[in-house]
């Protein structure tokens, strides 16, 4: 279950304060998948970060039940520590007792062997990308956050990753943020369309995509600039409140 109530989020930028979400409210029941669709700079990633608790709203509440992942593939490491030490840290933070199991899963996906004992800084760029994806697939959460549909095309053992991904998708509910309607399959029961100001929740795919297309067409590029100048938002000092559990 995810319940978002009157969520407002703005960013302080050079030209002034830019509001990405205003008074957004919606609720998605437990066990169903949610797709968030919107044009560029409509706040998709921001909303994913807010739901995931890695960013904080100016106002409004987000309530969720169950454990929630970090945004898919986005993990940072302590580069001077070995991969095993990094994994163990992550397990402790996530409350996963079975460290060996996680390491085994990462090993199966990436084929890493000696890399576990080496500092993370010794990993090359593609290996680190591989590790990011594998790590997201090795932990289990009730809700899984995807900021953009992950693509496994460039990875070795593409099939194994896709298999694992399908398994995760069957176990947890998914929140996917995307700008492409064709990435939203039948498995998404709810679709939230963001138009750069606020959003609307649809439970019908065709209506949602129509609304998305309309919002993209109707949004001239200049709207953003005007708004950041005319809307005089006082700096928000009161604390936004992310209710729910620090899990």
């Amino acid at each position: 279950m995810i319940r978002v109530t009157r969520l407002t989020k703005s960013f302080l930028m050079k030209g002034g304060r830019r509001r990405v979400l205003r008074d957004l409210s919606f609720e998605v029941p437990s066990g169903s998948n949610l797709a968030i669709i919107g044009g560029e700079a409509s706040g998709k990633s921001t909303l994913v970060n807010l739901i995931g608790g890695v960013d904080y709203p100016d106002r409004g509440k987000i309530r969720r039940a169950g454990t929630i992942s970090w945004p898919f593939g986005q993990m940072r490491y302590e580069r001077s520590m070995t991969l095993s030490q990094n994994l163990r840290f992550l397990c402790r933070v996530q409350g996963v007792r079975d460290f060996d199991d996680i390491q085994q899963q990462v090993h199966e996906l990436t084929g890493f062997e000696r890399e576990f004992g080496n500092p993370v800084e010794m990993l090359r760029q593609p290996e680190q990308r591989l590790l990011n994806v594998a790590l997201s697939l090795s932990f289990s959460f009730d809700i899984m956050l995807l900021d953009g549909k992950p693509s496994f095309n460039n990875l070795p053992n593409k099939e194994r990753f896709e298999e694992k991904m399908a398994e995760k998708m069957s176990q947890s509910s998914i929140i996917l943020a995307t700008g492409k309607p064709k990435e939203i399959g039948r498995e998404y029961a709810y679709i939230l369309v963001l138009d750069g100001q606020s959003g609307r929740l649809y439970d019908n795919r065709r209506d949602a995509i129509q609304a998305f297309k309309a919002s993209v067409d109707n949004r001239p590029v200049t709207v953003d600039n005007n708004q950041s100048k005319t809307v005089d938002t006082p700096p928000v000092t009161e604390g936004g409140n992310v209710r729910g559990i620090r899990n």
Partner: peptide, 30 residues
């Protein structure tokens, strides 16, 4: 209400603080 995998706030925080302390030690002296 939250599902069986959700830990209490205290369990989360103590786990995090311990994990961070160990990590800080390795980061500085590893």
């Amino acid at each position: 209400q939250f599902g069986h995998r959700v830990r209490s706030a205290l369990a989360v925080q103590s786990g995090v603080v311990f994990a961070l302390a160990v990590r800080e030690m390795y980061r500085k002296f590893g």
